[in-house]
Write a protein that binds this DNA or RNA. Structure first.
Lengths: 229, 229
DNA sequence: CGCATGTTTGACTGTAGTCAAGATGTGTGG
DNA sequence: CCACACATCTTGACTACAGTCAAACATGCG
């Protein structure tokens, strides 16, 4: 069983619910349905009708786009408080799968959009999220288009560092995805990704206590490699 | 002198003005100020305060992001009817320059946003544009992250083909930008871009009457190379 | 303990980047 | 009208980075 009050907190703290009154938050919650996902489980499937939008409440979700020939571009790794469901069409432009045990708050798209008209703050928030997503896509585009392998990896690690709230030096950052997933996010193969890890390790910029943890040893150097502008 | 009624038509036909009443269109027009730009002239500069948004009315505009070390990612080529001005922050995340003589309709950002609250249709349109931009960024990301040089070029040519309304086979598509610009859009050097042109020519997929025109000779093959999903 | 999965490393290949020369095209001035 | 200078694009030769294929190395789980 998932604790509904925890989800309410997640909603209130998220970009979706930020600034809404208790009453409005309740309205949003009332529309949503909690859904637990197991690792590897598909949340939305590319090209199927986009009938729902989601708020991620726990766990990490991988968003990806697949081509017919098997090539895959990972678009984002969503976490607690992140919104899922953008589309300019009636079908999803991407698939999303749970990387860990996840809790998603699921909303019927049409009703959610209708609710946006009733709660102006919610509509504002969605617009702002849209701009935020756009900004991070620009960063991503720059990294893939202009950076070298180890710089791209630095970019990803730095993103996770910032999202964890720039923790103390020495604390470990969790990377719940595989090397293949990281590679597909950065436009690299898994081997090149692995070599990029080795390079950053050898240069003393990071250490990796285990395959899914990174410790930043030299923050400035990492930042220089990761910088976008 | 720019013809104001032509601009009104552009606005009405664009994603910005679509579906608005004559009255509403007039309100929007009244807020805007026409601005002619010469080739090479800067329309917005990265990291300066984002005080204006624009509707492109004529000419092609290049949107790019520059890093301190000189690396550059071209983000988009805007044309008649395209909107310019998204930002999640108070500063522009990109620069925009005119590639040809351009006409831009310039709006004070704050007043434009205020107008969105008065004209619901305008707000809807902006939200939809946002989703469209997002979708095309996903395509772009996939192309750069997963495709080979000649496939990326096919992707760009196919985009321009679609934006011209899929013209008759045999008609030329205009590419007003340089090989360097194309390269920076696709994450390639200008030499690799040039070789990609040569390859598509040699394979009989395109022909290039001059450096700024492309004729699609084999549409299906081009589409296969360009395909995103 | 042994297998399965995921990661790292090595050897080699291939694609794109770099550096440089030549070709093409445009505009200017004699 | 031609000659020249300058831009831009194309091509060639070589280099470097990332991809491929394969083996070895961890790690975790039954």
């Amino acid at each position: 069983m998932v604790d509904r009050s925890q989800v309410l907190t997640t909603l209130a703290d998220s970009d979706v619910g930020r600034g809404l009154s208790a009453n409005e938050l309740e309205q949003v919650m009332a529309l949503g349905q909690l859904q637990k996902m197991d690792p590897g489980q598909e949340i939305v499937r590319q090209l199927t009708p986009a009938e729902a939008v989601f708020l991620s409440c726990a766990g990490t979700v991988m968003v990806e786009r697949n081509a017919l020939n098997g090539r895959r571009q990972v678009i984002a790794f969503l976490r607690r408080g992140d919104y899922l469901g953008f589309t300019a069409t009636t079908r999803y432009l991407y698939s999303a799968t749970a990387l860990e045990p996840c809790v998603m708050l699921k909303f019927p798209r049409k009703k959610f959009i209708a609710l946006c008209d009733e709660i102006p703050g919610l509509k504002e928030n969605l617009a702002h999220i849209n701009n935020t997503v756009l900004a991070s896509l620009l960063d991503h585009l720059f990294a893939i288009g202009q950076k070298r392998a180890h710089e791209r990896l630095a970019f990803l690690i730095y993103q996770f560092y910032l999202r964890d709230g720039s923790p103390e030096s020495g604390s470990a950052i969790q990377l719940p995805m595989s090397r293949t997933d990281i590679g597909d996010y950065l436009g690299l193969t898994l081997e090149t990704t692995s070599r990029a890890f080795s390079r950053l390790r050898k240069e003393g910029i990071i250490s990796t206590p285990d395959h899914h943890s990174v410790v930043i040893e030299q923050q400035e150097q990492l930042e220089d490699l990761a910088e976008v502008d």
